[in-house]
Each structure stands twice: as C-alpha cells, then as structure tokens.
Design a protein around this nucleic acid. Sequence first.
DNA 1: TCAACTAGTATACTTTTAGTAACCACTAAG
DNA 2: CTTAGTGGTTACTAAAAGTATACTAGTTGA
Lengths: 118, 118
Amino acid sequence: MKNTIKTKDNVNKINPKSCEQPCLIERGMRVLGGKWKASILWHLKDGPVRFNELSRMLGGASKKMVDQRLKELEVQGLVTREVISDRPIAVAYEITDFGRTALDILERLKDWTEENNI
Amino acid sequence: MKNTIKTKDNVNKINPKSCEQPCLIERGMRVLGGKWKASILWHLKDGPVRFNELSRMLGGASKKMVDQRLKELEVQGLVTREVISDRPIAVAYEITDFGRTALDILERLKDWTEENNI
DNA sequence: TCAACTAGTATACTTTTAGTAACCACTAAG
DNA sequence: CTTAGTGGTTACTAAAAGTATACTAGTTGA
C-alpha cells in the first residue's frame, strides 16, 4: 500500500486515504528526514549560505543531492533561494521563519546524538 | 562557537576551523530517520506491543519492513524483543530506557507536524 | 592564455530500499 | 477439515536514492 503520491513537481505528498491519523511522526519525518535535509536546514541557521559552500559544509553530498534536497525544502517552504548576483552567478539559500520552527527539534536531535555517542 | 563567518555580501562562509566532524544531525537521523523507525518507537511508548498489532498500527508497512526496522532498533538498543508465549507463538516488543530518551524529540516532531498541518 | 571559481544540468550507472506474494510451523475456533 | 490467526522467512521486482563524470556559460585572478 502506498502512503504517498507523486505530484508533478516530483515531491511526495501524503496520500490522504492512508496513514491518516496515527502517523504524525511519519509525516514529519518525510519533511525533515530525507538524507541531507535536516543537515541543510541546520547549516543555514546562522544566515544565508551559497550553493557550493553548502555542498562543502555537508562534506560528501553530491551536487545533485544538495540540489534536489534544496528544491524540496524550497517547495515545502523551509528555505528560500535568492540570486544575489547575476553576472558572476551567485545564489544564496536562506532558512525561512517556518524553517526556523523546526530548528528546535533539530537542536534536540543534535544534543541527543551527542549525549549518546551515536 | 559559530561555524560560519560573515562576508561583505552578507553571506556566511565556512569558518575553516569548524564543521570538521560533520553532522551530528545526520548521524541522529540515521538512527531515528528510517522509514518506519520513529513511528515504531512512538507506538511503543505506552507499553509492549505485539508484532502483528504493531504492523496494523503502522497501517501500510509490510511485515518485512516492520521486521527489518524492529531488528535495527533492537541492535541499536532502542527496543527489546521478548517471547511471551512459545506454543501459540507470541512476541512483544518493548521500548528500552534508552529508546525513551528519544521520545522527547519525537513528541516535538509530532507537535510541529500537527501545528503546521504537514 | 590558463586555471579555477560560480551554480547548476545531463547522463549513465550502481546501490539501497520498498513492497508483493507465497510459504512455514504452529494453534485455536467453528 | 477448513479458515484464520500467530511471527516470521524467502524470493523476487520495482522504485528510489545516491555516485561519478562531464558539460554549459560566464567571471576572476595570475
């Protein structure tokens, strides 16, 4: 049984017919739990960061991955993309106010990971 | 303590001294972020649950998935498996004390998902 | 002029995960 | 005897995730 359906922008949405009540946890995880998504959000908390800089911060994620995750985060309203220079193309990604509401969860996750040597 | 420094174009650059051992966030996500793992943990918070019952709670996860995730959680020490009856085979899964330390994060995730209609 | 940087896109490929369905051994009810 | 339930395992396929390399097209610095 599928719990998600693909939309035309290639983002998974929850199929409203299944997994309705119980899985708030699961639904949240589908926003924050993609492979690099939480990390990206975390690395944007101190201010806008440019694309290649972010790739380096994540140390190991390919451009394609960073690109895909950023697009997802943008569609979901957690991140904004702004072109800060046109001639030497320069783009900065910034966390939105909505994105910031998730940082509290991530901070706790970070602390938990640290405390338990995970 | 910041791992970025401001440049004149108001964009953060990596402070080369930090962000070395990357991604406590990512490491934590690899424990809690598998497809059904957080949900399983959440559904065990009120006491031991049997295998098939858990499958039904998750509504949509196949036996194989539930089995795999439970084994991972067991290895990682978040869950224990106990055979409560041998002849009519009956098994119960229970969250460990360590597993409980993660519930706080999941509660926040749940609230966040709920508040933002995700 | 050359190399390296910017932010991506395109293609091809491998690996991992998800999911289906059938099966096992057992029990208990009808 | 049949059906349904217990808790899985195995084999298989489909889909998603991830990697690697090359490419565009412009800029900057040596």
